[in-house]
Design a protein around this nucleic acid. Structure first.
Length: 676
RNA sequence: GCUGGAGUAGCUCAGUCGGUAGAGCAGCCGCCUCGUAAGCGGCAGGUCAGGGGUUCGAAUCCCCUCUCCAGCUCCA
């Protein structure tokens, strides 16, 4: 390094070309036949380096400080390419904001999933009219064909350049020298800035940025400003609130349109809308935010979920308990919830000189169940389980239908076990979670993450280390690649979160498995060991659905309300073609009901077409149309929600078929259907 | 909790300059007796989120509160 390089060999796959050091990577790609209009940047790997760097197209080869480099074009329609495109669009937006609001101070403007944002400190929040004006100004800047020009500066130069930009100065001041800087013998980091240069050579704007960027502003094919939002500087509540503008940018108008259409569809999939339209849920204002009523159709689905988990829980050796919804404050003081969790608990209720609290968690009750009598090591592992409804006073801004509620039900279990049983027990929970995801059509877990010790937490270092290691071992031995979410554990112990991906690709955290060493200590929980002495058990807490309500909402949005047969609130609908076949239609309904199917007869005074339409829009999995032909032959015409119609299907055979499908569905043997 | 946006019939939405509210769907009643995604006609349905203010007059303008949405923060 540092030696004068006279020529650089540039390789792309099998092709190679030798160029002068001052040639740009753009030129190199051109010579290699890999330059296209949609190439936004270049992945450059200097010989000997183990990772590629993203470079601007106009950056000269000499800056690689290597005699040979590997290059690969980064195209707009790739995740990396879109990030660059969006990052550049964020810069253009900041320039437009500065043009329209000269006093605006800039914070950060990164690409994010599906778009970008930029945070500003401005005198007043942006209005929708401001957004339209900013977007219009951005279109002028795109047409102005400003080039993005990269430059390296020192810390002092950067501080001088952004003398009137306090947030940029703060960023500059906080940066430590990177590994690259250290390797190059620099004790100060190098900063990069990007100047926006107009075709006439004048500098229109400059921003601190790691890059890379597009060659020029007219290379942004399609963008849209989406919305404004408040956001704390550096994401901390004690910091000033900035005004954030979200936008999105894409490689083509078509891609932008497709994205906007997808957003529209996601809105239509909202569980609150589906819950209302399909008469599953009722979220009236009279109840209060974060509280829900399950209407009969929703209740049928929920019961199917609850029946499944109850049966499986018993089959896997858990003991059921029932516990109350409130308890005296003393209990919450012993458990530590009043000290550590008070802001999430509903306020106290005074009753006959005693103070009661709604339960935010089921754990203390399960501990009391364990302590109902002296426990022997022979009883361990003891798995205590219930569907326990808890109430948490969530801050008003975070409540979100069933996904984030103030009252919700956990399929909650606490496993009391010895140290050497922990790994097996946690593995059992992970396997259980996998089986549950499969049965409910979510496929296998998409992500398994162990959350480690957070800053404010109870317990000793040794306890945490042992428990974290046990969780990692259990997840690994269950066949999952474990990710570590550092510092994300609960205050009372580390946890494993099991995530699933829904039908439209969104990831949800559902199952949580936690080790709790707080409660056993606080309640002085003990069992009598083989040696006759008292021993402290480990306590593993797990909720597989997470929350029944939340899982229900995820399932509803994932299936778009078209539940698999075994979960559907109404599994079969019978439609008589005319009044004279009503007796046979009744018979069909009766045959289904006798087999345990949830079935309705729609003999309303509407045309068959209207009733078929109603059955389809209500997403009933199986519609049976019966007329004279069917009555005579004791068959049905089957119209499934998805798939082909079948006529002349024998009634008995169909009922057996549906019963078999329900069994298979419950056992997780039916793969999820195509996206509805 | 914080920032912005919104709240009109069960649902989706219109309502101009401040002049006391309308459509489609759903519901109810009647006609039609029907072969696979909307047959026809009629009726009823509103404290315009709630409260206060300005005004001769408020869905419309102002203030407060509640709720919802999008974020931030937080989380199952």
């Amino acid at each position: 390094m540092g030696d004068a390089v006279t020529a650089v060999t540039v390789r792309l796959g099998d092709a190679a070309v030798e160029l002068a050091p001052d040639a740009s990577v753009r030129e190199a790609l051109g010579r290699l036949g890999a330059m296209r209009a949609d190439v936004v940047a270049v992945a450059v790997t200097p010989a000997g380096a183990d990772a590629a760097q993203e470079w601007d197209l106009d950056r000269p080869l000499v800056e690689a400080s290597a005699a040979a480099v590997d290059v690969a074009p980064i195209r707009a329609a790739t995740p990396e390419g879109r990030d660059i495109l969006r990052h550049s669009t964020a810069h253009v937006m900041a320039q437009a904001v500065t043009d329209l609001f000269p006093d605006a101070k800039w914070a950060i403007g990164p690409p994010v999933e599906d778009g970008f944002y930029y945070d500003f400190d401005v005198a007043r929040p942006f209005t929708p009219e401001d957004l339209a004006a900013i977007e219009a100004r951005m279109r002028e800047l795109l047409a102005a064909k400003q080039r993005f020009v990269r430059a390296e500066v020192t810390r002092d130069e950067a501080l001088a350049l952004f003398a009137d930009q306090p947030y940029k100065r703060e960023i500059v001041e906080r940066v430590e020298p990177s590994e690259v800087d250290v390797a190059a013998g620099r004790d100060e980091p190098t900063f990069t800035v990007y100047r926006n240069v107009a075709p006439d050579g004048t500098e229109a704007w400059v921003d601190l940025c790691r890059g890379p960027h597009l060659g020029s502003t007219d290379r942004i094919p399609a963008f849209r400003l989406m919305r404004t939002a408040g956001a704390y500087w550096r994401g901390r509540e004690d910091q000033p609130m900035l005004q954030r503008i979200y936008g999105t940018a894409w490689e083509s108008e078509e891609a932008l349109e497709a994205h906007l259409k997808m957003l529209e569809e996601a809105r239509a999939r909202d569980h609150r809308r589906l819950g209302r339209d399909l008469e599953l849920l009722h979220l009236p204002e009279e109840l209060g935010p974060g509280l829900a009523i399950f209407l009969p159709r929703g209740a049928h689905v929920r019961r199917a979920m609850e029946d499944w988990i109850r049966e499986e829980t018993l089959a896997r050796g858990y003991q059921p308990v029932y516990t109350p919804h409130v308890a005296k404050e003393d209990l919450w003081r012993i458990s530590g919830h009043l000290q550590n969790y008070a802001e999430l608990m509903f306020p106290a209720m005074e009753v006959e000189h005693a103070t009661y609290r709604l339960k935010p968690m089921n754990c203390p009750f399960h501990v009391l169940a364990f302590q109902a009598r002296t426990r022997s090591y022979r009883e361990l592992p003891l798995r205590i389980s219930e569907l326990g409804t808890v109430y948490r006073f969530e801050r008003s801004g975070v409540v979100n239908g069933l996904l984030r509620a103030r009252g919700f039900t956990q399929d909650d279990s606490h496993i009391f076990c010895t140290a050497d049983q922990v790994v097996d027990e946690v593995m059992g929970c992970i396997t259980f979670a996998r089986d549950l995801y499969r049965a409910f059509g979510l496929g296998d877990p998409s992500r398994v993450a162990v959350s480690t010790r957070p800053p404010d937490s109870l317990g000793s270092d040794e306890q945490w280390e042992v428990a974290e290691a046990a969780l990692v071992e259990a997840a690994t031995r269950s066949g999952f690649e474990v990710e570590i979410d550092a510092g994300e554990g609960a205050f009372y112990g580390p946890k494993i979160d099991v995530h699933a991906r829904d039908a439209i690709g969104r990831e949800w955290q559902l199952t949580t498995i936690q080790v709790d060493f707080n409660l056993p200590e606080r309640f002085d929980v003990a069992y009598v060991g083989e040696d006759g002495a008292r021993h402290r058990p480990f306590m593993v807490h797990r909720a597989l659905f997470g929350s029944i309500e939340r899982f229900f909402a995820v399932l509803l949005e994932s299936t778009n309300g078209a539940f698999p047969l075994w979960l559907a609130p109404e599994q079969v609908r019978v439609l008589p073609i005319s009044e004279d076949v009503l007796p046979y239609a009744e018979e069909v309904r009766g045959a289904c009901a006798a087999a345990g199917l949830r079935v309705e007869l729609d003999a309303a005074d509407d045309s068959l077409g209207a009733r078929v339409r109603r059955a389809q829009t209500e997403k009933v999995p199986v519609t049976l149309v019966v007329g004279g032909e069917e009555a005579a032959a004791r068959t049905v015409a089957v119209r499934p929600y998805r798939g082909e119609q079948r006529r002349g299907v024998p009634l008995d055979g169909l009922v057996a078929e549906l019963v078999a499908e329900i069994g298979a569905g419950r056992r997780g043997e039916i793969p999820p259907p195509a996206v509805d």
